[in-house]
Amino acid sequence: MHISEGILSAPVLATGAALTVVGTAIGLKKMDYDKIPEVAILSSVFFVASLIHVPLGPTSVHLILNGLLGLLLGWSAFPAILVALFLQGILFQFGGLTTLGVNTINMALPAVVCYFLFRHAVTSENSWVEIGGAFCCGFLAVGLSGIMVALSLLFTGQSFINVAKLILLAHLPVMLIEGLFTVFVVKFLKKVKPEMLEVANATN
């Protein structure tokens, strides 16, 4: 969920920008030149996935997949998400320049957290651990993003409490879908290209 321009207060915008600079610096440092095409292509997949709408009852939701991106990229998820969001900003004006920092940290921090929590679970031999890990990874990444969006609004002003609650509520079904989605994608990758999950484990 992008927070649009003109809503958040100066301290929230500044904190978001500062944290994003730190995260991106770590991500760039850990990303060697030979990894650039890979990170860039996964960043474009992330961009394109956000254009895929999956049906949910009478409406539809678009995919976020930050948990999956975290699993595949580790710390490099920071620059990847930053770049995808910046391009969305200049191509469609979704998000913008001042909110770029906050929006990046809101999506990238959960991605990195889930990477450290679940990177071993998803490569486990035990299929229950694998399924559970993948589900929690997708589920939690979106959930944490929702909480961070809600907190960004709450730190801006207590009056955003209703908006924040509604946003959290709207994230619940998306969390379930993303959890399921991550399970299926991880299963698929394990069958077709298992090294994709292992490479990320080895390099970060």
Binding site: P37, F184, V185
Partner: peptide, 21 residues
């Protein structure tokens, strides 16, 4: 539906990965 879309994204990832190499 979700499974089919997930396989679509999975395929996209695999092809992208190979392309990046």
């Amino acid at each position: 539906t979700y499974k089919s879309y997930a396989y679509l994204v999975g395929m996209l990832l695999v092809r992208s990965y190979e392309r990046s190499k």
